[in-house]
Simulated scan of single mutants.
Amino acid sequence: MHLKRVLWATAILGLVICSFIAYQIYTAIFSPNTQFNNEEAFVYIASDATMEEVKASLEPLVQDLSTFEAVADRKGYSSNIKGGKYVIKKGMNNNDIINSLRSRNVPVRVSFNNQESVAALAGRISEQIEADSLSLAQAFDDSQFLTEAGFDGDTKLAMYLPNTYEFFWNTSAEGFRDRMHREYTKFWTEDRLAKAQKQNLTPAQVISLAAIVQKETVKSDERPRVAGVYLNRIRKGILLQADPTVIFAIKKETGNYDTIIKRVLYRDLEIDSPYNTYKNAGVPPGPITMPDISSIKAVLNPEKHDYLFFVADVSNFGYHIFAETLAQHNRNKVQYIRWLNQQNVRR
């Protein structure tokens, strides 16, 4: 009789212990384990992250790191960490969190525009994805890639069309570059290629001319008219004489792309550079900036007119006054020169 009681007591104790362990396991896996007030939070996991680094990223978001790590070990996540951007929703349990980190990499929106060099572009992109600016710049400058893709040191910036794109945060530098090449190829439809050919321009030349248009006017509705001016000059064999190309030539020669030049002087026009359109005919060898799509479309769909000149309109800032003859242009230019002098703009 005494033995039966011992056996029953042992069995009950074992059941209690098992129930307690089961409860602990269930709690560790399925109880909510977040500690933020928003509906969701995001965590960025590096491609080469260790479990300690994952825990450090999650520390502000979860209540109990020890139970998270225990469940991560049990589910095999600790030895199979994947880089990316992941969403953690309020009230998630450890099982949900690990499932999210394992297979729910969410994209980020990457935007860029109007960069004047691939180095500047690399810096801009490195702020938005995992790849650093050095690896991005190296990928952009890779000579084998450029040759195979049909670009060179002057035209390489033309491949990157300003827009907003979706990428996974852990996209590599090469992955970003290759995607941009696909976007560039996709942009040049048969219709756009035909329009470029109609202007006797290659796609790269279209973008180089669009970059000048971009720098000349901030008004997108005026860009087709400005593009028409430059195309008229090209057809007539007249030098483009675009001040932004001279400014770019100065920046390129000095290596300082942050230089601010508000007024181009006569001595600047003598700079010996293939980008100086006061000395070299036709379109520059590459873009002086990254033009917006609106500027590219303006070159492909220019306004038809007989204008050959334009100058800033100081009575309507942002816009320009256009002229068909040099005499008209010189008269129009008086108001601009007067305004520059009144503002004491010397450089």
Rank of each mutant, 00 (worst) to 15 (best):
L265R: 13
V218C: 06
D306E: 06
W169V: 07
Q342C: 02
N200T: 11
E174S: 13
K85M: 08
K279G: 14
Q128E: 08
N113D: 10
S315M: 08
S103P: 06
S31D: 03
Q115I: 07
E127H: 00
A227G: 01
W8H: 03
I97H: 06
S135N: 02
F42V: 04
P107H: 10
S220L: 04
T67D: 06
V264C: 12
P274N: 15
T27L: 00
I212N: 04
I98V: 10
I97V: 08
V43L: 10
K89R: 12
T289G: 00
S135T: 07
A158C: 00
A137G: 02
F30W: 13
N95T: 06
D141E: 05
T217F: 04
N94D: 11
L136T: 14
S133C: 13
A139Q: 01
S172C: 08
K89I: 13
L3E: 06
S78P: 07
G228M: 03
Y319N: 04
S143R: 00
T189R: 04
E253C: 13
Y160K: 00
R223M: 14
N280A: 14
E130A: 13
N80I: 04
R347P: 09
E59V: 08
R267H: 12
Y86D: 10
L240G: 09
S294Q: 06
T155C: 11
S111F: 00
A227I: 01
T245D: 03
A28W: 15
I261L: 07
R192E: 04
Q241K: 07
K186I: 05
P60V: 05
Q214E: 15
S78F: 15
D48H: 15
N200W: 14
G228C: 03
I129T: 10
V283P: 04
R347L: 05
G175V: 05
V108A: 14
N33V: 05
R109P: 02
P32C: 06
L13Q: 05
D73M: 10
F248A: 03
A41Y: 04
P162R: 01
R124A: 15
Y278G: 15
Y275D: 09
I212L: 12
D268V: 04
I321V: 15
K262G: 12
E40I: 14
L3T: 03
M180C: 13
A210N: 06
K156G: 02
S294N: 12
V16G: 08
L326G: 11
F112R: 00
Y319S: 07
L61A: 08
R5W: 06
I293E: 09
K262P: 06
L58F: 09
Q205W: 08
W169M: 07
N37G: 09
